[in-house]
Design a protein around this nucleic acid. Structure first.
Length: 347
DNA sequence: CGTGTTTGACCGGCGC
DNA sequence: GCGCCGGTCAAACACG
């Protein structure tokens, strides 16, 4: 139960697109994920060492590093889950999800906006009585500016080099600044999920604090900035609505959580890798097409596991969710519009 | 009171 | 150097 309208719950229908591109200015995400394994987009670029930079939208060539938002958010936190995936992707459950997705797609057609939003929100919202809470307002997990960036830079400089004359100090200041900048510029890999949803902020099991909102150029829809409220977890995400397809929400995650999701904890350490067996919204479950062989490559920092992570327990059974209303929108042109700087021209 | 949102200001990178 | 723009800060505010 977030005050001030926080959280908001999930939307009625969801659909993502997986896409990767290199770092650059602008909104780029390293990955864009498509929840529908049958039509997911995924392009590799050599920069990250995943694949060979092929730029094709052919489904059978797609090798999404993450099969779902959940995969991305949680897949690397749970060693058992990872092992589970690496060993066997649970074909039965996998097939189940696939089946559900297919059914959803087939039976609901595209009616994007429906009154099911509220219903879906209720369903997709993993109950807000999460156990994790924090008053961490400014993300202790990552360096923050004391007051503003300049103040912090100066503090750092003062702390590091002190017995230098003013000139050297200035030089070191510049050097340090550029150094820090360089380090700071080193962004975490980002993964974008395109989701058909009525609500902007999709529930993903984690708790987020909104720390900013900006108007997006050439778009009537603003972009919201969220930060994970868990201390020591510097994961951020941006949420914006596609101006081209207003029913599509673009959620870009940056970084990896260093903790389990409150939702999973609430569910008794549910296997977030176990599609259909936990309380997570279906749109966050991993569809088929999982590529365990890519796990190592797709994750630049596999050491994100918490050593003290409690072993997963059997999840409490949750009532089967109603079918989602999903849409196919794997439109290359749309992707180009969404990520013009990174999408090649349609071959 | 705790938690989360809103919003204007600010910072820093980049292109011209 | 300047302006643009994405990203962030933080005080004020809202809500249960």
């Amino acid at each position: 139960m977030s005050s001030g309208g926080g959280g908001g719950g999930g939307g009625g229908d969801h659909h993502g697109v997986y896409y990767q591109h290199g770092h650059g200015r602008g909104d780029g995400a390293d990955y864009v994920f498509n929840n529908n394994d049958m039509e997911s987009f995924f392009f590799n670029q050599p920069a990250l060492g995943v694949g060979g930079g092929s730029r094709t939208g052919a489904a059978d060539e797609l090798m999404p590093p993450y099969n779902s938002i959940t995969d991305y958010l949680q897949g690397f936190l749970d060693p058992s889950g990872l092992a589970r995936h690496l060993d066997a992707p649970c074909p039965a459950e996998d097939a189940q999800v696939k089946h559900e997705l297919s059914l959803d797609v087939m039976s609901h057609d595209s009616q994007g906006t429906s009154g099911a939003a509220g219903e879906g929100a209720a369903l997709l919202t993993p109950n807000s009585s999460v156990s994790l809470s924090s008053s961490d307002r400014e993300g202790e997990g990552q360096p923050r500016r004391c007051k503003k960036g300049r103040a912090k830079a100066e503090d750092e400089v003062a702390a590091e080099g002190d017995e230098k004359d003013q000139e050297d100090r200035e030089n070191s200041t510049k050097a340090n600044k550029s150094k820090k900048k360089a380090e700071k510029r080193k962004r975490q890999p980002r993964v974008a999920f395109l989701t058909k949803s009525e609500v902007d902020h999709l529930e993903d099991g984690y708790r987020w604090r909104k720390y900013g909102q900006k108007a997006v150029k050439n778009s009537p829809y603003p972009r919201s900035y969220y930060r994970c409220t868990t201390p020591k977890c510097g994961v951020k995400k941006r949420v914006e609505r596609s101006y081209q397809d207003p029913s599509t929400v673009i959620t870009t995650y940056e970084g990896q959580h260093t903790h389990h999701s409150p939702a999973s904890l609430r569910a008794g350490g549910a296997h977030l890798f176990m599609p259909g067996a936990h309380g997570l919204p279906p749109h966050l479950m991993a569809p088929s097409g999982f590529r365990p062989d890519l796990m190592g490559m797709m994750h630049p920092n596999p050491n994100m596991f918490l050593p003290s992570m409690p072993p997963p327990q059997m999840p409490t059974p949750s009532p089967p969710p109603p079918p989602l209303q999903q849409h196919h929108f794997t439109d290359y042109a749309l992707l180009q519009d969404l990520f013009p700087s990174t999408m090649p021209n349609n071959p």
